[in-house]
Design a protein around this nucleic acid. Structure first.
Lengths: 210, 210
DNA sequence: AAATGTGAAGTTGTTCACAGCT
DNA sequence: AGCTGTGAACAACTTCACATTT
């Protein structure tokens, strides 16, 4: 039944939850305890009705005549997104981009713990501050098992991406953040999010032509 | 009139052009000269009708009974996206993420030339292979002018993002790839593409809850 | 015969308008 | 009185069905 409900919730609405969460944190830091859909929506760059509709996909969290309690909304969003506990993540493929993501410490800051980096060519890469071990692909199964890893960041070359994705799925990974510029074909129950920086630039380029 | 046509083309269709382009290059490398919407769509992970509809937003490029000429389609897409000539880009904000993007050489590979990196704290950062100069923000106007830069990658902290965006727009930048996790408010004629890695992970996290 | 191009139908996502709480 | 929650209207996007071309 949970599944049925989920298929009815627009993917975009779930993305927006992350946006709302960020805005709410900012409000909280400013000592604001209660917020109306109008104010929060403005901060998030959406229409108030959309915010309200998004929230009602998951339940009723506001008080009519008053608005939403900031703390409670934060709580419920992080509950929904499953970000209350640290989520273990592996990075597979440590070329230029993988290295870049490793030295960028953003993942850790946001509640995701990188429990391993893997590549065909294991090595020790000295990031700006701490050394990071890039392990052999042989160790991948053990690490995924030991840490019960469900999430992977995929930075291998496009030619290898499908194969590695299959491998990850076989090992129990159910969500992949894919940086390889190819369309992965995976079973329905696996979630893929694609990030393609070159595509973002190309897209911008389209809008430049004056 | 050009503008009018454009507003009718779904943003998603323009993203898909990039996908098609990649697939077409792969086909070309495999020595394939002609492709049907069915085959190309499969490679791109979309329905054939969608591919055809997407293309007809821009004109008629196929031959009935035959399909599309690979080379010609590649040509027309890169014409549309404006990727035929090297587009100059500046990176503003060289913290962890900015540094990561600099050492990742993906932009250059895809036809975008980084003509400058800027930060409040100029420095020389030694990337894995070549040293990169991080220049003072004072030089930004000169560089943007000299290279006629229309595109910027924004990696400053969220608190500074809006201000820097305003500055860039003032200087003539019309397209911004924004990595800062805030909603930028800009004039309609400016295009913003947001990339937020933490949000992508949070989104995946939602789908993990078994 | 094969495959594109496209108006129309269908689906999904957004916004409106207002009923219903507090 | 103020602001949420929501069915209904609307808009955007996708898919279908088929006429059209080679």
């Amino acid at each position: 039944m949970k599944k049925v409900i989920r298929t009815e919730i627009p993917r975009k609405a779930i993305y927006r939850l992350s946006v709302y969460s960020r805005c709410l944190h900012r409000l909280e830091n400013n000592g604001i305890h209660t917020v109306s859909s109008e104010v929060l929506a403005k901060a998030a760059g959406v229409k108030p009705t959309q915010l309200r509709k998004d929230l009602t996909y998951f339940g009723q969290f506001g008080t009519r005549g008053l608005g939403y309690e900031v703390k409670q909304l934060i709580e419920m969003i992080s509950e929904l997104l499953g970000t209350k506990s640290l989520q273990p993540v592996v990075i597979v493929g440590v070329g230029n981009l993988g290295r870049a993501l490793l030295s960028y410490r953003g993942f850790e800051r946001e509640g995701f713990g990188i429990v391993g980096a893997f590549d065909l060519n294991p090595s020790q890469y000295l990031s700006s501050d701490t050394p990071i071990d890039v392990q052999s692909m042989d160790i991948l199964p053990k690490i995924i098992n030991d840490h019960v890893v469900k999430m992977a960041v995929l930075c291998v070359p496009p030619t290898a991406a499908q194969e590695v994705a299959n491998q990850l799925i076989e090992l129990g990974v159910v969500a992949i953040l894919n940086f390889a510029p190819i369309v992965l074909s995976v079973p329905d129950e696996i979630t893929i999010n694609n990030v393609n920086l070159a595509m973002e630039l190309e897209n911008l380029s389209y809008f430049i032509n004056e």
